[in-house]
Amino acid sequence: MTATPAAVVPRAAAPLPSPLRIALARAAVETKVLFRERDAVVFTFALPIVFLVLFASIFSDSAEGTGVTVAQLYTAGLIGSGVMGTGFQNLGIGIAGDREDGTLKRLVGLPMPRAAYFIGKIVSVLVMTVLQVAILLAVAVLFFGLELPAEVSAWATFAWVFVLGVSAASVLGIAVSGLPRSGKSATAVITLPFVVLQFVSGVFIPITALPDWLVNMSSIFPLKWMCQGFRSVFQGDAGAALELTGSYELGKIALILAAWLVGGLVLCATTFRWKGRRDG
């Protein structure tokens, strides 16, 4: 008598990881990929240090009548520039490259929340920026006599300006990634406005030395306000006299950076493309 084979019960498919776990895994991947580009990493870390060495060596030790040192002035500006450069410039160029080589198109076909890709990118920007700031501060303290603020309130200000700045710069980088017609043109298209913003936002040239029309233009964009917020941390009350209004306007800084964050999110939601122009 032939035995009847037992019915095969199909096994239930394993549940997918939670969206948070997927996002964190994607963040780890993006960070690893970022640090494998050694030339880009070295350039990103070295550029603000080179500028600090040049400016601290060329200009006088302090602003007349205030006691604010060149190290204090340019450290604040270069931190703002680093935040904007990593979030806006590097991220925008990187995503344009992902779109060009088909990475975005492949990710769309995976069972992965699309938000995980963006979270991964923003976390990689945060890691890079934190390291960049730490190295810049170490160089400024060890070689140029920068005195770090002792007040907890100053570091609290640094924290919220930094978080809002990184967030706003990152969503703007995501939004601007769709402007270049190809990955090859992304560097030129995205770098040009960033370079202009550095010169009119108080990074290289004191904001009080600029003509009114340039100040009005820079006041529209977030980099000017990030630099102003960081100056409040490193220059303290003595440096407020160097501001156009005689005040750091911290409340206004928070509102403008938050507005750019919200506006950037709206731009991302309405304009972001997962496919290149050639893909239709």
Results as ranks from 00 to 15, higher is better:
Trp160Arg: 02
Asp101Ala: 07
Glu249Trp: 02
Gly65His: 04
Leu78Glu: 03
Ser201Arg: 06
Val215Pro: 12
Val9Lys: 00
Asp61Arg: 14
Ala259Phe: 14
Tyr74Lys: 10
Leu52Glu: 04
Ala238Asp: 06
Val171Ile: 04
Ser81Asp: 00
Asp98Arg: 00
Gly173Ser: 15
Thr129Ser: 08
Val83His: 05
Ala254Phe: 14
Arg99Ser: 10
Ile95Asn: 01
Leu255Ile: 11
Leu73Arg: 14
Lys275Trp: 10
Thr271Tyr: 11
Gly65Ala: 02
Ala12Ile: 08
Arg38Cys: 11
Val108Glu: 05
Val161Cys: 06
Val233Cys: 11
Thr157Asn: 08
Ala27Thr: 01
Phe230Gly: 04
Tyr248Val: 09
Val196Ser: 10
Leu223Pro: 02
Ser153Gly: 14
Ile207Cys: 07
Thr191Phe: 15
Ala76Asp: 06
Cys268Pro: 13
Gly165His: 04
Ile119Val: 13
Gly102Ile: 06
Gly102Arg: 13
Ile174His: 01
Gly77Ala: 07
Pro193Asn: 00
Arg277Ile: 15
Pro180Met: 15
Ala116Gly: 01
Arg26Trp: 06
Ile122His: 01
Arg21Leu: 03
Met112Pro: 03
Met112Ile: 14
Val133Trp: 00
Phe162Thr: 02
Ser170Leu: 05
Ala140Gly: 06
Ala40Trp: 12
Ala240Gly: 11
Gln132Gly: 05
Gln235Trp: 14
Ser177Arg: 03
Val171Lys: 02
Gln72Ile: 14
Ile49Trp: 08
Thr270Leu: 15
Pro10Glu: 01
Val195Arg: 00
Phe199Cys: 07
Met217Gln: 01
Ser170Arg: 06
Thr103Ser: 15
Ala134Gly: 06
Thr44Met: 09
Ala240Phe: 12
Met128Trp: 05
Met1Asn: 07
Ile93His: 03
Ala259Cys: 10
Trp274Gly: 06
Gly82Ile: 09
Val29Gln: 00
Leu110Gly: 09
Gln228Thr: 14
Leu104Thr: 01
Ala7Pro: 09
Val262Ala: 12
Ser219Glu: 07
Val8Cys: 00
Val70His: 10
Val266Gly: 06
Thr245Val: 09
Ala12Trp: 07
Gln198His: 11
Arg99Ile: 09
Phe272Val: 08
Val9Tyr: 02
Leu24Asp: 02
Gln72Glu: 15
Gly120Thr: 01
Gly236Phe: 08
Val176Phe: 06
Phe45Val: 13
Gly173Ala: 13
Ile119Asp: 05
Val196Asp: 02
Arg273Tyr: 07
Arg99Asp: 03
Leu267Arg: 03
Gln198Tyr: 12
Arg114Tyr: 05
Arg106Tyr: 06
Ile220Asn: 08
Ala169Asp: 03
Gly87Ile: 05
Ile49Asn: 04
Trp155Phe: 14
Ile22Leu: 04
Ala3Trp: 11
Ala259Lys: 00
Val171Gln: 01
Ala175Ser: 12
Gly173Trp: 00
Val139Lys: 04
Thr2Arg: 15
Leu137Glu: 04
Gly65Val: 05
Ile122Cys: 04
